[in-house]
């Protein structure tokens, strides 16, 4: 069976969930061979083997942290040359898309970004994408070269599928471009203890209606009662009430949880773009005409300052 390269997104050896989802999709198209780079690369092997990686190619070098994007492209290109895979899958983060694009150009291949599903097809992998703010679904494929496809988080279930996961050192020589953009400082994002926005099964978001940074505490309390991640509309982020890393929408994160709860959010097209594919959508808004109600499975027309705390209390008492 043909091999499929899977680019591993990890933090010091801890594999992030979207990579495990990629392994599920990769197994539909071939045998997953993972590529893990940078500090802790070899520590990813156990988790990757558990989820189906037959091989884990690793390479550690300071360049991966000290310079932007290009060292990773060099390494992935080395892996493509070593393996001659049937496809290359990369998680659809901002960086993942940039790595994938430059790789595709170098190896003379087409690229598909932000796939939400992947199937084997007669003429290579077929990717499903959601476009125009999720109002259309397309099926595409790469027609030239080795398909390079980036896949959004929450596109597949994580499945255990134990495989050998044999670690092999990848040999990489960095290109002249590798050291072009220096990372002179890095401030890691502080963990909130809540689930990762793009990976969460439930997302609770607040918008302009929340009316102040301090009021986001009621959104957080609802999120915590459900074990959910917290999101925000751009209006709330621009007002400085919540960090940009939590913005949901076209220029923020796109989320596809089992349940999305929007409070005080009108449902502008750019917000929809980031949440419209959620399985179940719930909204609380005092304006019965708000466009968000066109999307909902369940909506409450009311003041979020009444409804949200009451909901949180009720959830807590039901959970005991």
């Amino acid at each position: 069976m043909a091999e499929v390269l899977v680019y591993v997104d990890h933090v010091d050896g801890a594999v992030r969930k979207p990579t495990l989802e990629l392994l599920t999709l990769a197994r539909r198209v071939g045998e997953p061979v993972a590529v893990a780079l940078g500090n802790g690369a070899a520590d990813t092997a156990a988790a990757l083997a558990e989820h189906g990686a037959v091989k884990v190619l690793t390479h550690e070098a300071a360049e991966y942290a000290d310079y932007l994007v290009v060292p990773k492209v060099d390494a992935l290109q080395a892996a493509v040359e070593a393996v001659s895979p049937a496809a290359v899958l990369v998680p659809s983060s901002a960086e993942g898309k940039e790595i994938a694009a430059r790789l595709a150009l170098r190896i003379g291949s087409g690229i598909i970004t932000d796939a939400i599903d992947l199937e084997a097809g007669d003429e290579g992998p077929v990717a499903t994408q959601s476009v125009f703010a999720a109002s259309f679904t397309t099926k595409s494929r790469v027609s030239k070269g080795t398909p390079v496809i980036t896949v959004k988080p929450n596109s597949a279930a994580v499945e255990a599928a134990p495989a050998a996961g044999a670690v092999e050192a990848l040999s990489v020589s960095f290109s002249a471009q590798a050291t072009g953009t220096k990372v002179t400082a890095r401030t890691p994002r502080e963990s909130t203890g809540r689930p990762e926005l793009t990976e969460a099964a439930i997302v609770v978001s607040g918008g302009r209606g929340v009316n102040g940074a301090e009021n986001f505490a009621i959104i957080e309390a609802l999120a915590d009662s459900l074990g959910a991640a917290v999101g925000a509309s751009r209006a709330a982020v621009d007002a400085g009430w919540y960090p940009h890393t939590n913005q949901v929408g076209q220029t923020g994160k796109s989320v596809s949880p089992q349940l999305y709860i929007a409070s005080g959010i009108s449902g502008a097209i750019q917000h929809r773009a980031g949440m419209q594919t959620s399985k179940t959508i719930v909204a609380i808004n005092k304006d019965a005409e708000a466009p968000i109600f066109e999307l909902v499975d369940y909506g409450v027309v009311g003041d979020l300052f009444d409804v949200v705390p009451a909901l949180t209390e009720e959830i807590k008492s039901r959970k005991g």
Partner: peptide, 10 residues
């Protein structure tokens, strides 16, 4: 380098 085979309104 890519082809769209189908597009359907959600």
């Amino acid at each position: 380098y890519t082809v769209v085979d189908a597009a359907a309104e959600r």
